[in-house]
Design a protein around this nucleic acid. Structure first.
Lengths: 220, 220
DNA sequence: CCAACGCCGGGAAAATTTCACGACGTTGCA
DNA sequence: TGCAACGTCGTGAAATTTTCCCGGCGTTGG
């Protein structure tokens, strides 16, 4: 590994999965994994201390999610290059990730070459989207449907995700380090923007749009 | 790799994740990954042709899922050793997997050592469950896993169904010819009986128990 | 007969949701 | 450059809902 290698921070809550990234990436000359994080908060800390050239970020993680981590890192460093690498083959997530400041979005079903190519693209300053998501985006574009991702700001989207995943307003407030009141306000605003009157409708809408998949809630 | 190595079939729809398993496993002497599959059907075909000593199986995959693949393989070969390795930190999944014939259940959040130990255990004929799932199972055992249909009276169950059907309290009150107040009281009582704190949890519980299926979501 | 339970709702306290509003920083554009 | 628009965070107060406690009714079953 030469001194000119591009340095990479891996973020994923599954250690064996990180092992996979690392194995694929280190076969490439010029790339070097310098740190690994298992949640959003740790990712942010390590970004500050390591200042890597690239962050490869999973989305679904405990505590603050990937979107929020992207947002925070970009808030600190406008030039940060972040490539989202996730299982969610969902245009809404891609839109949110890019809006939050990610420079690429690749699904885990992609072959390793696609990941490597995306890494190179993002390092070179280009935006990288994997073909399946390109297709998803094209479809949703054609359908002209307004999804949750379209009307919600990144922050609202993140709160929605936590509402669907965590339990109480107070817990969410704590993980986001804001007042419970703010979360309640956002919660209300989200329902308003999405045009639903109750939390039950909210969950149903989220399900329809793939924000909450059947597997997310632990099928019996 | 000696002739006496234990042969392994990896099943996961994310190629980079398979790379992770492989990397971890092949550091262990005596283990050899001989095949990889990306869905349940392929796993079954490869099991027949390769007859590996062990299958490491993900659960969430396109087409026939991991549970079904486990069932089919075990149906064909009663002695098949299958270790489920999944992101689902959920006792219900674990129970299903073991019932289907898996000999182990390990979550992807586990450190690599846990996976390796589980592999060795299953190869040695033991059942392997990762500690977090042990804990989940213990909890659900202690809690006595209250089923919705079980603990609710017919009336309460009916109200729950209507609540999930995207109706307001007032509408439900009208269809049932009772006061909105009664519906609100029942709504509260239902949440209490099911041990959930919010409507969002209520919907998630209902989904888990099959009270509300994806197709019921209808249109906006 | 009486105890237990499901069912129905009123009243009041407690909690949440909603609305109006302001502060602050950033973005975008003329 | 300056300024308008927007996102984010939070407060306070009103409106609404949720929750708790209560009693009444009918049915069931010992």
């Amino acid at each position: 590994m030469s001194a000119g290698d591009a340095t990479i921070l891996l973020v994923d809550d599954h250690s064996v999965v990180r092992e996979g990234y690392r194995s694929v990436l280190e076969k490439q000359p010029g790339l070097r994994v310098v740190a690994e994080a298992s949640d959003g908060a740790e990712a942010y800390r390590l970004y500050k201390s390591e200042a890597p050239d690239l962050v490869i970020m999973d989305l679904s993680m405990p505590g603050i999610g990937g979107i929020e981590a992207v947002r925070r890192i970009r808030q600190r460093d406008k030039g940060a290059k972040i490539l989202v690498f996730t299982m969610h083959q969902n245009a809404g997530f891609a839109v949110q990730a890019i809006r939050a400041g990610a420079r690429g979005y690749v699904t885990k079903t992609s072959p390793p070459e696609t990941l490597v190519r995306a890494v190179m693209d993002v390092l070179a300053g280009r935006i990288a989207i994997s073909p399946d998501i390109d297709h998803e985006l094209a479809l949703s574009r054609l359908a002209g449907e307004s999804s949750a991702a379209d009307v919600l700001t990144p922050r609202e989207f993140e709160v929605l995700r936590l509402l669907l995943a965590e339990r109480t307003t107070d817990e969410i407030a704590e993980t986001l380090h804001v007042s419970p009141k703010t979360v309640a306000n956002l919660h209300s605003l989200i329902k308003d923007k999405l045009g639903v009157g109750s939390d039950i409708e909210l969950v149903r809408l989220a399900l329809r749009q793939g924000l909450l998949t059947q597997v997310d809630l632990g099928e019996a």
